[in-house]
Each structure stands twice: as C-alpha cells, then as structure tokens.
Design a protein around this nucleic acid. Structure first.
Length: 550
RNA sequence: GGCCCCAUCGUCUAGGCAGGUCUAGGACACCGGGUUUUCAACCCGGCAACAGGGGUUCGAAUCCCCUUGGGGCUACCA
C-alpha cells in the first residue's frame, strides 16, 4: 500500500510571506494536491527574539490570498497538533531527555563569545568548524551547577561518526557528507527552546511528513537532521527534495532586504533630502534615519513602505502583499512561481491552478538556480487578466482598489464593469486604476503632468484645437460615444491632421496625462458639464503659464 | 577559508538519466515592420545559447575528469 503523501510548509513567523517562501509553500502544496495527500502548515516559532506577534496571521492571509490552503495547521487543527512549535515544548523536552539518557546528546556550557573564538580559530586554520565533543559527557548535575554559576547550558546532538552520511535527494541523487565535518549541533538552546534543526525533525516525524520540499539553503542541514532522525529510532525517513534558489537581478538570493536597500540607494542618490521630514513621515527619529542610511539598522517594512511611497520611489516587490498592491493576480503569482524551477515538460507556460496540480511532479524540478524575471511576470499577469472570468475579475479589482484606497472605489458595478472592459489588454490592475482614476477625482484636484502638457498642448496647435473641441462639445445635444467620435473625427479631417492631434489635447485636459480610457468613453463617462469645466480650466491655466513665460 | 549544490539564447527553460532524429525547440525581453484616439493589447518577421579544456565513443549539448564561473550554508535564525 503506497504511503499517503504528506508535505508541509514550515515558516518562521518573522514577517510577511515573501516570494521565496511562497514558492516553497506552493511546491509542497502542489505535490500534496497532485497525490491527494495532506498539506500541513506548521509555524516554527522557536526563536523568542525574532517572532512578530502578527506575522503568523499575516503569513496565513498571504497563503490564502494565493489560494494555498492547508489540511492541517493553525485555525484548522488536525490529528497531530498543535501546529505552533511554541506549544509543543513538552514533546521536545521528552525527546531531548531520551537522547541525553541514551548518551546521544550532551550538555555544553560555552558562551557565544567562546564559540566565536573557536570558529575564528578554525577559519584561520583553513578548516571548517566542528564542535569538539568531550570525551566524557557532562552530567545532569554538572548542568545544574553551570546554570547556577550563570553559564549558558545548551544540549548538542552527538552526530554518529561511524560512516559517511548519505542523503538521498529526489532531484540531486545521492549526496555524501563526511560525518566529522557535520558538527555536533545544538538541539536545545539555553533558554530551553529547541533549535530549528531539532524541532523540525521531531515534528516531521510526529506529523508523518513523507516529503520535505525546501530550498537548497537547507541542504547542509540535512545530514544532521537525518542522523538525528535515525538516532531517535524513527522509521520512514522522509524523502528530501532541495529546490533551486530564486535569485534576484542583483545577484544573490532574493531577499526581503532588497526593499530597504533600494530605498536607501534612492535616498542617497537624491540631492537635498530633508532627513527630519523623512523621519517625520516614517514616524521614526532622525537618528533612525541616519542609522538606516549608514547601514547600521533597518526600519520595519511598513516604515520603509511609507517613506518610499512618500518619495515616490518604486521598490521591487518581494513580499506577497507587495505583488497584490502592485496589481498582480494570485493566479499569476502561482503560475509564475510554479514555473520558477519547474516545468510541465511541454511548451505550456500559462496554466491554471488545476492544470498545475495535474502536471506537477517533483522529479521535474530544475537543479540550477533561477532569476526572478519581473518582465515575464508582467507578461504572465497580462495573460491571466485576459483569462479570468469577469465576475471574478470584478472581485479582484474591487479588492485591489480597496487595498490601495483608490477613488475608483466610488464606481458602481455597472460603471466598473464598463471600465474593466475598456481596459482590455491591461498588464496589471494598477493600469485599470490609473486609466480611470480621473473620473472620480474632483475637477480642481486633477494633477497635470508637465511633460504631457508640453508635448500635447503647447505644440502643434494643441491649445487651439482644444478650444475648438470645447465649442463643438458645448454645442452638442447628445453626448454619446458615437457622437463624440464623429465630432472629433470630423474635426481632424477638417484640419487635415490625425485624430491624435485633436484627441490628445482633450485627453490631457480631462485627466492630466496622455494615458486614460479611450477618449470617447472618457468624455461620455465624465459628462458634458465636467468635461467642459476641465477644458476651460486647462485652457485658462496653460495660457497663464505661457504668459508668465514659465 | 571550509563544506555542499549548480552550469543550454540577455532571462525562464525543453532536450541530458535510455549518446545519433539538435544545422538545439518554446516563452519573456530586445530589434524591424504592421494595426492604432493614448497606454496597453494584437499581427508578421528577426537576432540570440550547449562556459573552457581534456577524455570515452564510429558519433557527445547529452557519459567521465579537470579548470573556470555562479549560488548556498558555515548562529543558542529558520
């Protein structure tokens, strides 16, 4: 009887879910789905210093946004819970004790500084660091005394040294490690919490995980974890799959540090920036800003986001929320992420989730690292935007508008649907907002883009044509798209110019830039009254600007 | 430094495990052209890769070794 496939995603709750994590979660989820198995979400919150209270919720929200749901885990429960490691301390304690009793683990008392010195020594010696195992393991009594003396007490696992440790990786084959290069690692910290390397082995066993699909960055942890699994007498060693790493344009592993780094670079490149003002905007002190620019510290992500938004510095999307705020569809992310280091073996690229599940196979994972290509992501989004059914799309659009707090939110369903239709070919949901925003902004709040004004109104009789358009519009009784079109085309013909020469000045007058919904619809949607008002205001302002010689 | 992984167009990749069907296929980007009321979208065409060197073999992108290059890990983080 074949074993039921059980996979898991085990993030530490340190912040938002980022693309790398999402990809790991996705592959595990796809594999479970493919095999009608179980997908577990387990929260690895064993580091008291790094846990953010809201992070678990955030990660779950992000996973759900992507459509990745778990069969066992927080909020849904399951037979092998709890699924928060911080709630499993008794379990870990039990196994620590077992290992200690069996002399497979031992106490250590070094301070962080002492260990650091040993490491430096090893490096100076051109050797890898491996903890020197004592000949006689300290007793329970020794540990008690050390604790009393204020020394940190940790527990290390004694990695069996008898033979090479061979890890079987489903995509990389056999990987052999020399056991004396696998250091006896800490399994219990001095604060009593288990380390990742320990807790994850215990839980993978107790939760009956069959496939561990994770990033290549964990490959070096595997010999230790596998030895531990065996030393605990656990059966059914899980199958290991170490995926390629996602690389960013700048070279290294795609990391959340990229957003602050981009912002820092942008600020430094600016001429006179008012640091006090920035501090104010971000709600932090001037010293915080200075430390940030000096590379000493990094403010929290919301602060980074706020400052970047204020300075209008675009930051690369890293976290899943960043992508949703940039107007990407969950379908796009899932499809794109799935194809980063995996492919179905044929020429298909744009795939629905059901297709991905159907075609997914861990043995087709790519070995080499792949670069996160944002251009291709956009193209995927364009395709998915064309594919989603319109009632689903309207839901996405509304959620997006809400997320970015757009004035387009005022549109009723009928109008919104019409806008969406008019935006066919859009690349992101942001395009839809950008093109239709002007309809929902007060006439006197329209911002006129300088370049557009210069290019369209101040050249090629732009202003004159606009004035004529104004009069003809004013004279029109019925303002249907068709009538508007006839009028504009007629004028262009009279003037012996292309339609653009009369349409573009009008567009700029209405929305302040050269990009908007199709012009005939734009006028019709805006209404005659507001259209005329905006034209008048534009003509007035531009003339004034010309007079002051500016 | 040590250990580990990887290596096909600029990028994601097919092909590699079962060597000939590969003058290396697809997609994104790019370039040229078309369409066009803006931005997109759309249509047609084009450019572009087996990292280098040794083997094995009648024959290597495919198997082996070395070099080079890239990446990961090297915490009482996960």
């Amino acid at each position: 009887m074949p074993q039921k496939v059980v996979t898991r995603f085990a993030p530490s709750p340190t912040g938002y879910l980022h693309v790398g994590g999402a990809r790991t979660a996705l592959f595990n989820w796809l594999w479970a789905k493919r095999n009608n198995g179980t997908f577990i979400l387990r929260i690895e919150d064993t580091d008291q210093k790094r846990n953010t209270p809201t992070a678990t919720q955030q990660v779950m929200d992000d996973l759900r946004w992507l459509g990745i749901t778990w069969d066992e885990g927080p909020e849904v429960g399951g037979p092998n819970g709890p699924y928060l490691q911080s709630e499993r301390m008794d379990t870990y304690e039990k196994y620590i004790k077992q290992l200690l009793d069996e002399k497979k683990a031992y106490y250590c008392f070094e301070t962080t500084e002492e260990l650091g010195a040993l490491r430096e020594e090893a490096e100076a010696d051109k050797k890898g660091f491996a903890y020197q195992r004592p000949e006689v393991f300290p007793s329970f009594e020794d540990a008690r005394k050390a604790r009393e003396e204020g020394r940190p007490v940790t527990v290390r696992f004694a990695v069996p040294q008898d033979k090479p440790i061979v890890v079987h990786d489903l995509i990389r084959g056999e990987i052999s490690f020399n056991p004396n290069e696998v250091s006896d690692f800490i399994i219990q910290k001095s604060d009593g919490f288990p380390t990742y390397n320990f807790a994850c082995v215990i839980d993978d066993y107790l939760m009956k995980v069959t496939h561990i699909i994770r990033g290549q960055e964990h490959l070096n942890n595997t010999p230790g974890q596998q030895s531990l699994w065996l030393a605990l007498g656990f059966d059914n060693l899980p199958k290991y799959v170490h995926m390629s790493v996602t690389i960013s344009e700048s070279g290294g592993k795609l990391s959340k540090r990229e957003r602050p780094a981009t912002l820092k670079k942008a600020i430094k490149a600016m001429q006179d920036v008012d640091l006090d003002n920035l501090a104010n905007v971000g709600g932090i002190s001037r010293t915080d800003i200075e430390d940030f620019l000096a590379g000493k510290s990094i403010p929290d992500m919301p602060i980074i986001n706020t400052i970047a938004e204020y300075l209008k510095v675009p930051l690369p999307e890293i976290n899943i929320v960043d992508f949703s705020k940039s107007g990407y569809l969950p379908e796009t992310l899932v499809n794109f992420l799935a194809l980063l280091g995996w492919n179905p073996g044929d020429d298909r690229e744009i795939m629905k989730i059901e297709e991905l599940i159907e075609a997914f196979d861990v043995s087709r994972l790519t070995k080499s690292n792949s670069l996160f290509d944002r251009q291709k992501l956009i193209s995927f989004n364009t395709e998915h935007l064309k594919m989603v059914e319109s009632d689903k799309l309207i839901g996405y659009v509304k959620a997006y508008l809400k997320e970015i707090d757009s004035p387009v939110l005022q549109a009723d369903d009928e109008t919104l649907l019409r806008i969406i239709k008019l935006c066919e070919g859009a690349r992101t949901l942001a395009d839809i907002d950008r093109k239709s925003r002007f309809l929902f902004i007060d006439d006197d709040k329209i911002e006129y883009d300088e370049k557009s004004v210069k290019k369209v109104l101040l050249k090629s009789n732009g202003l004159e044509n606009l004035a004529i358009v104004r009069d003809r519009l004013a004279a029109m009784e019925e303002l249907s798209e068709h009538a508007i079109e006839q009028m504009l085309r007629g004028l262009a013909e009279e003037k012996q110019v292309g339609l653009g020469k009369v349409a573009q000045p009008l567009r700029v007058a209405l929305c302040g830039s050269t990009v908007s919904l199709p012009i005939f619809d734009s006028v019709q949607l805006l209404t005659k009254e507001r259209t005329l008002a905006r034209i008048d205001k534009t003509i007035h302002n531009v003339k004034e600007q010309a007079n002051t010689g500016d």
